[in-house]
Deep mutational scan, measured.
Amino acid sequence: MATGGRRGAAAAPLLVAVAALLLGAAGHLYPGEVCPGMDIRNNLTRLHELENCSVIEGHLQILLMFKTRPEDFRDLSFPKLIMITDYLLLFRVYGLESLKDLFPNLTVIRGSRLFFNYALVIFEMVHLKELGLYNLMNITRGSVRIEKNNELCYLATIDWSRILDSVEDNYIVLNKDDNEECGDICPGTAKGKTNCPATVINGQFVERCWTHSHCQKVCPTICKSHGCTAEGLCCHSECLGNCSQPDDPTKCVACRNFYLDGRCVETCPPPYYHFQDWRCVNFSFCQDLHHKCKNSRRQGCHQYVIHNNKCIPECPSGYTMNSSNLLCTPCLGPCPKVCHLLEGEKTIDSVTSAQELRGCTVINGSLIINIRGGNNLAAELEANLGLIEEISGYLKIRRSYALVSLSFFRKLRLIRGETLEIGNYSFYALDNQNLRQLWDWSKHNLTITQGKLFFHYNPKLCLSEIHKMEEVSGTKGRQERNDIALKTNGDQASCENELLKFSYIRTSFDKI
Rank of each mutant, 00 (worst) to 15 (best):
L326Y: 14
G300T: 10
T250P: 01
E97S: 07
E51H: 04
S213D: 15
G333L: 04
C255F: 00
S98R: 04
C255L: 00
V126A: 15
V108G: 02
P197Q: 14
V305G: 09
M137G: 08
L99Q: 00
M125P: 00
M65V: 05
T199H: 14
F66Q: 04
K100C: 11
D169Q: 11
F115S: 10
T140Y: 09
D177W: 05
E181N: 14
T140P: 05
R41M: 10
W160N: 01
G227W: 02
V281P: 00
M38S: 03
L102W: 14
F205I: 05
T199G: 13
F115I: 03
F123I: 14
D247I: 15
H274S: 13
C255V: 00
Q276K: 09
D101S: 07
H28Q: 07
R145D: 03
C311Q: 01
E207N: 15
E151Q: 15
P36V: 03
E124L: 02
C234E: 01
F205H: 10
N195R: 08
D178H: 08
H59P: 12
C35N: 00
C235F: 01
P220T: 10
V206T: 13
T211S: 04
M65A: 12
N325C: 13
K294Y: 01
N308L: 12
K100T: 09
H226M: 14
C219T: 01
Y319P: 01
C239R: 01
D101K: 04
G333F: 11
F275D: 01
R69S: 05
R92Q: 03
I139E: 00
P220N: 06
L260V: 09
F123P: 00
E238C: 01
R263I: 08
I62R: 02
V253M: 09
V108Y: 02
K80F: 09
S225A: 05
A254T: 11
C328H: 01
I306P: 02
I40L: 12
H214S: 10
P79H: 03
I139Y: 01
H290Y: 10
N42M: 06
W210Q: 14
F205M: 06
A190P: 10
S213E: 06
H290D: 08
I185S: 07
F275S: 05
C234G: 01
C264T: 00
L164E: 04
E147K: 00
F116W: 09
C239W: 00
L136D: 01
I82D: 06
I122C: 09
D169N: 03
D288H: 03
A119P: 00
R279T: 12
D277V: 06
G262C: 05
E238Q: 08
L63V: 13
K310I: 06
C315T: 03
S296E: 13
E130N: 11
T85P: 00
E124Q: 09
I62T: 00
D178Q: 07
I185P: 15
C286L: 02
Q303P: 09
P249A: 11
D261W: 04
S161F: 06
H127M: 04
D39T: 04
S284K: 05
G203L: 07
W160D: 01
L131T: 11
S284L: 06
N149W: 00
E238W: 02
I56A: 00
K224C: 05
H290I: 04
C335I: 06
E130M: 15
D75L: 10
T221R: 10
D261L: 10
L81M: 08
N309H: 13
N295Q: 05
A198I: 06
N202V: 04
H236P: 02
R297M: 08
L152W: 00
D165T: 05
S161R: 10
S284M: 11
N43Q: 08
H28A: 09
R263E: 06
R279C: 02
M137S: 07
R92H: 05
E168S: 15
L44F: 12
R279S: 12
A190R: 08
G232R: 03
P197C: 10
K80A: 12
P313D: 07
G227I: 04
F116N: 14
I62E: 01
P197R: 13
D178G: 11
Q276I: 03
A119F: 00
R110F: 04
M321Q: 10
L29P: 09
L90H: 00
L260A: 12
D75R: 03
W210M: 05
C255H: 00
V144E: 01
T320F: 11
V144A: 08
C239D: 00
C293G: 05
M321V: 13
R113C: 07
S296R: 08
D159M: 07
Q61I: 06
K310D: 08
V93F: 11
C280Q: 01
D178C: 07
N150C: 04
R256D: 04
